[in-house]
């Protein structure tokens, strides 16, 4: 067969795509996952940025919220997919089953990240359409693309958080932990309410959260950030992601050793 002469990378990609398809479909068919992750950010934006701000003299609020609800929009699928999904698959034994198949571990991770990115892209698409055509937000083309790019890239650090939670928490606990992180981190990081309207203490705390840095990086694109340098956010974000990945690795080692 001609197909067998193709390089290994081709097959890896094929497997990764296929796994993504199934991961995406199974997520989509789980209303408890799909509905909140897709609808929360879009409805929040519709109410707070479009309806409440309609006819105002400034587009600062709808523009700010476009960036932050975008980050919020990828946070959901990333940490729920990894955090809850992984804990579930591990505790039900599905993960063990997958490990017995010849599927490379990379494809498994790719599929989950890609699924979060697809959900994220759908959310971004809906938010951008609402912002551009209902709220009246106008951005330079480069700003639209930069926003979309940064928000989609946020899937990686957020997935790392989910991975760490999924690696350590039991199935039942994972739901609670993920929700706590999801809501708490979003609020304190200024994703729901502009961060300069929050008490100073919360602004100081926010620095420990990746969502804060991603929010600021997106806000920088539209000149609405707090004015810290880019490297400050990138360094802290990188460090926080590394911590999550190490935590996840330690968690899985414990699981594998059992």
């Amino acid at each position: 067969m001609a197909a067998n002469t193709r390089p290994a990378l081709f097959w890896h990609l094929r497997i990764a795509l296929l796994e993504t398809r199934f991961q995406f479909l199974s997520s989509l068919r789980l209303p408890a996952f799909a509905i909140p992750t897709l609808l929360f950010p879009v409805f929040f934006y519709l109410f707070f940025a479009v309806v409440f701000q309609s006819g105002g003299p400034s587009l600062a609020a709808p523009t700010y919220m476009l960036a932050t609800y975008g980050v919020f929009g990828v946070l959901g699928p990333s940490i729920f997919g990894f955090g809850v999904g992984l804990a579930q698959e591990r505790d039900t034994g599905a993960l063990l089953l997958k490990r017995t198949t010849p599927m490379p571990a990379g494809a498994f991770l790719f599929a989950r990240v890609a699924t979060a990115a697809i959900f994220g892209a759908v959310v971004i698409g809906a938010l951008f359409l609402l912002a551009g055509f209902a709220a009246g937000v106008e951005l330079h083309r480069s700003q639209w693309f930069s926003l979309a790019g940064i928000i989609l890239a946020a899937v990686l650090p957020f997935s790392a958080i989910g991975l760490a939670i999924g690696a350590w928490a039991k199935q039942q606990a994972a739901v609670a932990v993920v929700n706590l992180v999801f809501i708490g981190m979003s609020l304190i990081s200024g994703l729901w309410v502009p961060i300069d309207m929050l008490p100073n203490v919360m602004q100081d705390i926010a620095i420990v959260f990746p969502a804060f840095h991603l929010g600021q990086l997106t806000l920088k694109v539209i000149d609405l950030d707090l004015g810290r340098p880019i490297w400050f956010h990138l360094v802290l974000l990188g460090g926080q992601t590394a911590v999550c990945l190490v935590a996840a690795a330690l968690g899985f080692r414990r699981f594998s050793g059992r």
Partner: peptide
């Protein structure tokens, strides 16, 4: 395509 059709400032 969606990103390409979003409104830009004058």
């Amino acid at each position: 395509s969606l990103l390409m059709m979003l409104p830009v400032p004058e």
